[in-house]
Design a protein around this nucleic acid. Structure first.
Ligand code: DCP
Length: 747
DNA sequence: AGATGAGCGAAG
DNA sequence: CATCGCTTCGCTCATCT
């Protein structure tokens, strides 16, 4: 993508600070993506001109130099919102404001007595529907006696925090309680897991082809729910949102869509397109109730398979049922039952594969059923916008428009190679398949085991200093932890949102994140407990080196260990990182905790502790067996006493010692193999390896991942150790005790 | 050749 | 007053081994 186009896009989606262009609905197939944008802006400009907003009443504004957005756009925004343009600064009328991006030194002086603002001021005024305080958008920092910028920012944050305090103890939970996107995401996860449970109960049947797939979805779901007790509004343009100018529209009805209003659009923008648009409120409980009915009705059909797509949307394999009943009739009956029980309309697409079912659903809306077959589809789909194809969003549609492809039938015009080169192999292949109406017909392949768990918060994040950043980070980590309990995380990716250098300090969306630079870093977290995780995350967040006041959001995502496919690679434990293990065999050191902790042993004890006690591995390995045993049995006490009393021995001769690792091995057989190799490798166990083994077993246990596997592993060790040295036998006994203690209820 | 990480895009 | 911009997955590309 052209860098400039890219910038524009960022502008638009991640918080578009202009939010002038929305949406992606119409690509004309004219030239470049970038130029598309310009044309859309102009269209927008004309539409805006018809409005009679008075935001800039009495404002006489001079535009200076190159600006982003362009003079034309700014002019349009100003004029259409009641302002006027000042053509000559020295003229009769005094300019109330000057809009400028950058100023030369000379102009700096020349403009010293004016209110000189950045273009974002104009844009944000329009977006928020009012005249904003210009001082937050100064283009000349020193033009008037003012606070230090840093103090200004501090002041702004203090004021914002009065309204929205992201450090309040219940901030995260109350935020998520109101977030529609959080609602959608969590509901989907819930439903997916329910469907998977259900799948476990279904008989494993043969899969004769062709299949019959239903794709069912409520029509303008949130709006439909909101209209249940307001039937008189039914024919008005309606949307569901929180109502303010910079609030998102979650859902709008078909009447509103006639004006160009779309889901995800800001209310201010939608009101420009459709001044009569009515905003109604959310009702999450009712969404859940309707969703439950939908899924219950589906399950009651006793279908071959159900896959949750969303809270209001599901794929259903009804092949078996359709041997008796007509699919279309089945769908109609389902629709009526759901309508009767929920009071809202659903539509159904029926087809032999997933892609066609989705497209059939699209044709079926509103309140209908459409059946597609391989032979009927090409004709019915010919005029569908490529935007409506699954997996084709704003960006890919834009690139397709550059290739002259705006609707389905145009796909024929381009070669497979062109598609693959321009859009990537995967998308190219997919599009070719779509053109041939080919797609998977196995909806069970769509719900896979969960691979990651994450949490993200990018609203209301306003922090003053490092301390507050750490506090917020800690809170979010707790939220993450609360979602992860019984899973087995391997790495954590931290995604950091930082205000873009040229983005205004006050965001256009109230308390939003504005336009941000987003960067991420990944860390290994195997074995960490909550405290360890917190420390890790806080450190990592600090490593982004962002001025606290520019932090705008944080995301944390845990990648879960793949328990299905064993790999050759190993789990790397976070703090026993390579530095001390393999790459510098001369100084293998183990960092040990200074004192005993409550609760399960995890590796977090070994990291990030201010007072780490270092012990050379050789110290341990050279000890007589008897002492080793004591250490293993009472490791904690030992650790406290040893370090000062024993000077470090010189490094032993470099050996071919290979640390043992259970990394990535998940099958019972694989784990045993590692164990056997380990036992064969040495007369008695290495201290480091003991630590790793212990931590691995603890981890299996504490994470609920598979405690039977932990026990079985330890028992196997015991079994094998009978042929080995006393040290091995002792290790096995210690581990068995350790495991036994975990099984017993805590006294 | 496969694993991993950063980053982008899509979906609803 | 506003506002609640989440979460998971797939893919590409670069890098490491
Ligand atoms: N950007 C978006 C898209 C959707 N939703 C919510 C509101 C929708 O009601 C619901 C379902 O999304 P759909 O894509 O199915 O859209 P609708 O149900 O609103 O309309 P329709 O399915 O009839 O096109 O998800 C949202 O909050 N934000």
């Amino acid at each position: 993508m052209h860098p400039a186009a890219k910038r524009l896009h960022d502008h638009e989606v991640s918080g578009d600070e202009t939010n002038i262009e929305y949406g992606a609905s119409e690509f004309g197939g004219f030239g470049q993506y970038f130029r598309n944008k310009q044309i859309k802006l102009d269209t927008q400009l004309r539409e805006a001109n018809q409005c009679r907003s008075q935001i800039f009443k009495d404002c006489h504004i001079y535009l200076n130099g190159r600006t982003e957005p362009s003079h034309t756009i700014l002019k349009g925004l100003i004029v259409s919102n009641g302002g006027s343009i000042c053509a000559f600064l020295g003229g009769k009328t005094y300019a109330t404001h000057i809009v400028a991006e950058h100023l030369t030194k000379r102009k700096n002086n020349q403009f010293a007595n004016y209110k000189v603002v950045k273009p974002a001021w104009v844009v944000n005024c329009v977006n928020q529907g009012k005249l904003l305080d210009w001082t937050n958008y100064r283009a000349i920092e020193s033009s008037l006696p003012t606070l230090d910028p840093k103090e200004t920012q501090e002041q702004i944050i203090l004021e914002e925090r009065e309204k929205v305090n992201c450090l309040a103890p219940d901030y995260i939970s109350s935020y998520y309680a109101r977030s529609r996107l959080h609602f959608l995401s969590t509901k989907k996860a819930e439903l997916r897991s329910k469907c998977q449970q259900l799948a476990g109960q279904l008989p494993v049947a043969e899969r004769p082809s062709p299949r019959t797939i239903l794709h069912i979805d409520f029509d303008s779901f949130f709006v439909a729910v909101a209209l249940k007790d307001k039937p008189d509004l039914k024919d008005q343009p309606i949307c569901v949102s929180w109502g303010g100018p910079s609030s998102d529209i979650a859902s709008c009805n078909y009447k509103a869509r006639e004006f160009g209003v779309q889901n995800g659009m800001w209310v201010s923008r939608a009101l420009q397109l459709c001044p009569k648009l009515v905003c109604l409120s959310y009702n999450f409980d009712e969404y859940t109730r309707c969703s439950d009915v939908l899924y219950q009705e589906i399950v009651d059909l006793r279908p071959d398979y159900v896959t949750a797509v969303s809270v209001d949307e599901a794929l259903v394999d009804v092949t078996s049922l359709c041997s008796k009943t007509d699919a279309s009739q089945l769908a109609q009956e389902l629709r009526s039952r759901i309508k009767a029980k929920t009071g809202i309309e659903a539509s159904v697409g029926v087809a032999p594969n997933i892609f066609l079912a989705k497209m059939a659903l699209r044709l079926a809306k509103p309140a209908g059923v459409v059946c597609l077959t391989q032979s009927s589809a090409p004709q019915r789909l010919a005029n569908c916008s490529v935007r409506d194809l699954p997996g084709i969003g704003y960006h890919i549609a834009a690139k397709l428009a550059d290739l002259g492809v705006t609707n389905y039938s145009h796909l024929k015009r381009v070669t497979e190679n062109t598609l693959k080169n321009q859009l990537g192999n995967a998308v190219g292949t997919k599009l070719v398949d779509y053109l041939n109406c080919q797609d998977s017909d196995d909806i069970s392949l769509m719900d896979q085991v969960q691979k990651s768990v994450g949490v993200e918060l990018c609203w209301g994040v306003r922090l003053l200093n490092d301390n507050e950043v750490a506090q917020f980070t800690s809170n979010l980590t707790e939220e993450l932890w609360s979602r992860v309990q019984s899973l087995y995380p391997e790495t954590l990716t931290i995604k950091f949102y930082r205000r873009a250098a040229d983005a205004p300090f006050v965001t256009p969306k109230y308390m939003g994140c504005g336009r941000c630079d987003v960067t991420s870093k990944t860390r290994r977290v195997v074995g960490l407990d909550l405290e360890g995780l917190k420390t890790l995350v806080i450190q990592c967040v600090q490593s982004f080196a962002c001025p606290p006041m520019d932090m705008r959001g944080l995301g944390l995502q845990l990648r879960l260990m793949d328990t299905t496919t064993p790999t050759h690679h190993a789990i790397k434990f976070p703090q026993l990182e390579t530095a001390s293990r393999s790459t510098s065999p001369n100084k293998p050191k183990i960092q040990l905790p200074p004192s005993r902790r409550r609760g399960p042993t995890t590796l977090s004890q070994f990291v990030n502790q201010p007072d780490k006690v270092e012990v050379d591995m050789e110290v341990f390995d050279n000890l007589p067996s008897q002492i080793k045993r004591e250490i293993m049995a009472h490791e904690d006490e030992f650790l406290v006493k040893v370090p000062s009393s024993r000077s470090r021995s010189e490094p032993a001769a470099v050996t071919t010692y290979e640390p043992v690792s259970f990394r990535g091995v998940t099958s019972e057989a694989g784990l045993r193999q590692v164990l056997r190799d380990w036992m064969r490798s040495a007369e008695s166990p290495h201290y480091e390896d003991v630590c790793e083994f212990r931590d691995f077993v603890d981890y299996l246990f504490d994470s609920d991942w598979n405690w039977t596997k932990a026990i079985s592993l330890v028992n196997y060790l015991n079994h094998c150790s009978l042929n080995l040295s006393q040290d091995w036998q002792y290790l096995a006994k210690v581990m068995q005790e350790r495991v036994a203690q975990k099984i017993l209820p805590i006294n």
